[in-house]
Amino acid sequence: MARALITVPPNAKRGEVIEVRVLIQHPMETGYRPGSDGRILPRDLIRKFSCRYDDGKSNEIVFSAELYAAIAANPLISFHTVATGSGTLTFLWEGDNGFMQSEMAAIKVS
């Protein structure tokens, strides 16, 4: 499993806009680059990312992204969401060669 680093403030005030940062280990191989043997390395990209926020009342995707070859290796994505209630954020990355990884982070909202 790829290593991921999730940065979500563990505590927030209701209605506060929080920054969410996610970093995941992935080569984001473009499919345009030759390897050491001169042959083109096959494309291996994370294509989709989403963040689902379950705050006890609703459970919906609050942010999502489609990524292309121009996104750097070990992709970093930073975005914002309103702290609506205590619960969990679920992150999902999907990509070529059946890549799929999910991570969770808890948030306490007062």
Partner: peptide
């Protein structure tokens, strides 16, 4: 629900 329209990568 984003609260702020700002994205970085």
């Amino acid at each position: 629900r984003a609260g702020k329209a700002q994205v970085s990568t």
